[in-house]
Amino acid sequence: MKWSELCIHTTQEAVDPITNVLHESGSSGVVIEDPEDLQKDWPTDLGEVYELDPADYPVEGVYIKAYLPVNSFLGETVEEIKQGINNLLLHDIDLGHNTITISEVNEEEWATAWKKYYKPVKLTDHITITPTWEEYQPASDKELVIELDPGMAFGTGTHPTTVLCIKALEAVMPEKAEILDVGTGTGVLSIASAKLGARSVMAVDLDDVAVQSARLNVKLNKVHDRVTVKQNNLVDNFNESYDIIVANLLADIVIRLSDDAVNLLKSGGFFITSGIIYNKKDDVRTKLEQSGLSIVKTLEEDDWIAFVAQRN
């Protein structure tokens, strides 16, 4: 089968929202080529490291590559994608060059090729993520291993926003915590919470593909007795109280969610938020404090920010 590859030249800030637009338009795979990856020192103790070709990367900004089947609706789909991306300007998201190029590829070239770059990654001193198709032996009994198969859902669990959330969970997780994971994606934060000792986790996502992927990964990691995955829009129709609410979302959504999050937190509970690009940091901090939360910890990696806020 033949597919069209859409290559979008944009910014790091726009990666998550554009990825969402692409997924909603029927993309069956996304590749992100960020030139910052060329500068990183990748660990060599967890498997083979593949040499990255600088020619595949932009000089500035980020390439997002998406794949759509070649059919009679392709033209309309591309136009819908362009319109959806341009609509992000209404939310003050910097799109950078915002150019789209299209090329044709065969299914065999991309359907599995990306897997050779997805290797076990040690996220923290205690947690390692490994793809299900890789053999991995923990270095010690204390190491927590999360097996992940992203499938068609976005996220391999190694993005800086996810790492920041996991570090925050490690820092503040109370014993036998009850947790709400908003926008769970592949379920990695819910699985990490369960492995860190949470008594129960409610994982929600609006996207059906993400829900199915999260359920699969929860079973793979044998935490289905503590993690429930549900299709839901943010925290709509929730009345329970939680020790921790974790939300790896866009800054604008975090701002919109903060008042509802406070109402669902137990006294002294924590609201962990990530997915916040640096230039949105002050806006999110201000809204969290206005909602009655105190910022107790700020974590940073690359251009991303995560806040740990506590209910007063």
Score class of each variant (00 low, 15 high):
235 V>N: 01
202 M>Y: 01
232 N>R: 09
220 L>T: 08
237 N>A: 08
229 V>H: 06
176 K>R: 12
221 N>T: 13
225 D>T: 14
215 R>S: 15
191 I>K: 12
235 V>M: 12
186 T>S: 07
188 V>Y: 13
218 V>W: 06
215 R>M: 10
173 M>S: 10
209 V>R: 12
233 N>T: 11
218 V>I: 13
200 S>L: 05
202 M>I: 13
177 A>M: 14
195 K>C: 05
171 A>C: 10
225 D>F: 01
170 E>N: 11
237 N>E: 13
240 E>D: 15
239 N>D: 15
223 V>H: 04
186 T>R: 00
187 G>I: 02
231 Q>R: 15
176 K>H: 11
174 P>L: 08
194 A>Y: 07
185 G>M: 02
181 D>P: 02
201 V>I: 14
228 T>M: 09
171 A>P: 11
229 V>R: 01
235 V>Q: 07
200 S>C: 03
217 N>C: 07
217 N>T: 04
196 L>I: 06
189 L>E: 13
238 F>L: 15
191 I>M: 02
180 L>A: 12
216 L>P: 00
169 L>S: 09
225 D>V: 02
221 N>G: 10
222 K>I: 07
198 A>P: 05
240 E>L: 14
219 K>I: 03
219 K>W: 02
226 R>M: 04
174 P>F: 00
174 P>Y: 04
204 V>P: 07
235 V>F: 08
221 N>F: 05
174 P>R: 12
239 N>S: 15
197 G>L: 11
185 G>C: 10
177 A>L: 08
169 L>N: 14
235 V>A: 12
196 L>D: 07
213 S>V: 09
199 R>P: 06
234 L>I: 09
217 N>W: 02
219 K>F: 00
201 V>P: 00
193 S>N: 04
219 K>L: 05
175 E>R: 11
204 V>D: 10
237 N>H: 15
212 Q>E: 13
231 Q>M: 11
242 Y>K: 08
215 R>A: 11
223 V>F: 02
236 D>E: 15
223 V>M: 09
236 D>K: 13
184 T>R: 04
190 S>W: 03
216 L>W: 03
214 A>W: 01
233 N>M: 05
224 H>A: 11
189 L>S: 13
203 A>N: 02
186 T>F: 06
195 K>P: 06
175 E>L: 07
229 V>P: 00
241 S>M: 08
192 A>H: 09
185 G>H: 06
172 V>L: 08
178 E>Y: 13
228 T>S: 06
